[in-house]
Amino acid sequence: MFTEIDHQKFRNLRITHVATRFEELISDEANDELTPEQIFLTAVDDALDQRQAHRIDKLIRAAKFPIPQASIAEINYQEGRGITPVRMKRYAGHNWRQDPTNLLVLSPTGGGKTYLACAIGIAACQNGHTVTYARMDELARRLVIARGDGIRHQKMLNDLSDVELLIIDDFLTVGIDPEAANDLFAVLANREHRLPTMIASQSRPAYWLEALPDRVAADSIVNRLANNAREINLGEVDMRRQRDDQARATTGYWE
């Protein structure tokens, strides 16, 4: 068994997970037939898997998804939603670093946009991508608050500009002020041709042009978001109502 001095050596080498797993494996009688080399390599593989799992968990926490358990495997593909398992499998394995094409997820309220956006974003984290999720109204509010501190404000703009996948949900469900629109323009201009942005909205680009406070900025923002973007149109299926109806039908439900 390893001594405390041995463990300190492993800590200095930053391979404590390998050492811990190796000690567990050699203590297991089920591994008596394995060679030391086989046990060591198994410990290395297990430690790498653990490190990868921790990195994925960290990426998911940092993204701040409102539905952190969302999964592409659990998406409802009923008729009328405009999505298929094959198409979503492509998004699950997509390399967002290499393809800066934006993605628009569109449907009326209750269509499941947020769940879908979270599921795609979580799949991106599982592939090692950095992701930031934000609701448009909350993002605008954070930008307004940060504007009082020039350094903090610039750091926020830089972070939004450089994250590998930026997800903005509830896009223009409520209006934003001109300064927030200017910040949005700066972020999108910095991301253009470099990194993709996902927009989830219950309205289409034609409405965004009318809703943004400055027409010139609106043209630039919508042009950067919508030109050559991929689009998922979830149709008119109200997933929220279906979920609520299913809940009412379960045993023990009362209101």
Rank of each mutant, 00 (worst) to 15 (best):
residue 1 M to L: 11
residue 1 M to G: 15
residue 3 T to D: 06
residue 3 T to K: 10
residue 4 E to Y: 04
residue 9 K to F: 02
residue 20 T to S: 15
residue 22 F to V: 12
residue 25 L to Y: 02
residue 26 I to K: 11
residue 28 D to Q: 10
residue 32 D to E: 13
residue 34 L to F: 07
residue 37 E to Q: 10
residue 37 E to G: 15
residue 38 Q to C: 14
residue 39 I to E: 06
residue 39 I to S: 07
residue 42 T to A: 15
residue 45 D to L: 13
residue 47 A to S: 14
residue 52 Q to E: 11
residue 55 R to M: 11
residue 57 D to C: 04
residue 58 K to S: 15
residue 59 L to I: 09
residue 62 A to Y: 01
residue 63 A to M: 04
residue 63 A to V: 03
residue 64 K to A: 07
residue 66 P to D: 07
residue 66 P to K: 08
residue 71 S to D: 11
residue 71 S to T: 03
residue 71 S to C: 05
residue 72 I to W: 06
residue 72 I to T: 01
residue 73 A to W: 08
residue 76 N to W: 13
residue 76 N to V: 11
residue 81 R to P: 06
residue 88 M to G: 04
residue 91 Y to S: 01
residue 97 R to K: 10
residue 99 D to T: 00
residue 99 D to E: 06
residue 103 L to Q: 11
residue 106 L to P: 07
residue 106 L to S: 12
residue 107 S to N: 05
residue 107 S to L: 04
residue 108 P to Q: 13
residue 110 G to N: 05
residue 110 G to P: 08
residue 111 G to I: 02
residue 112 G to R: 09
residue 112 G to P: 09
residue 112 G to H: 13
residue 114 T to Q: 05
residue 115 Y to K: 12
residue 116 L to I: 10
residue 117 A to F: 06
residue 119 A to P: 02
residue 119 A to Q: 06
residue 121 G to L: 07
residue 122 I to K: 12
residue 124 A to W: 03
residue 129 H to V: 06
residue 130 T to S: 15
residue 130 T to Y: 08
residue 131 V to P: 07
residue 131 V to S: 08
residue 135 R to T: 11
residue 136 M to K: 03
residue 139 L to M: 06
residue 141 R to Q: 09
residue 145 I to N: 00
residue 145 I to D: 00
residue 145 I to C: 00
residue 148 G to H: 01
residue 148 G to T: 03
residue 149 D to V: 00
residue 152 R to K: 11
residue 153 H to K: 00
residue 156 M to Y: 00
residue 158 N to G: 01
residue 159 D to T: 01
residue 161 S to N: 05
residue 165 L to M: 05
residue 168 I to N: 02
residue 173 T to R: 05
residue 174 V to S: 15
residue 174 V to K: 14
residue 175 G to I: 07
residue 179 E to W: 03
residue 179 E to D: 08
residue 180 A to I: 00
residue 183 D to H: 00
residue 185 F to V: 02
residue 186 A to E: 14
residue 186 A to N: 12
residue 186 A to Q: 14
residue 187 V to G: 03
residue 189 A to I: 02
residue 189 A to F: 03
residue 190 N to Y: 07
residue 192 E to Y: 15
residue 192 E to S: 14
residue 192 E to Q: 14
residue 193 H to I: 08
residue 195 L to K: 00
residue 195 L to S: 04
residue 195 L to Y: 01
residue 197 T to I: 06
residue 199 I to Y: 14
residue 202 Q to K: 04
residue 204 R to T: 15
residue 205 P to N: 12
residue 207 Y to K: 12
residue 212 L to N: 07
residue 212 L to G: 04
residue 213 P to Q: 02
residue 215 R to N: 05
residue 217 A to D: 05
residue 219 D to V: 01
residue 220 S to A: 15
residue 221 I to C: 03
residue 223 N to I: 04
residue 224 R to W: 05
residue 224 R to F: 04
residue 226 A to S: 15
residue 226 A to K: 00
residue 226 A to R: 01
residue 231 E to T: 09
residue 232 I to Y: 00
residue 234 L to T: 12
residue 235 G to F: 13
residue 236 E to W: 09
residue 238 D to Q: 05
residue 239 M to C: 13
residue 241 R to L: 14
residue 243 R to W: 14
residue 245 D to N: 08
residue 245 D to Y: 12
residue 246 Q to L: 15
residue 248 R to K: 15
residue 249 A to V: 06
residue 251 T to N: 10
residue 251 T to C: 10
residue 251 T to M: 11
residue 253 Y to G: 10
residue 253 Y to D: 10
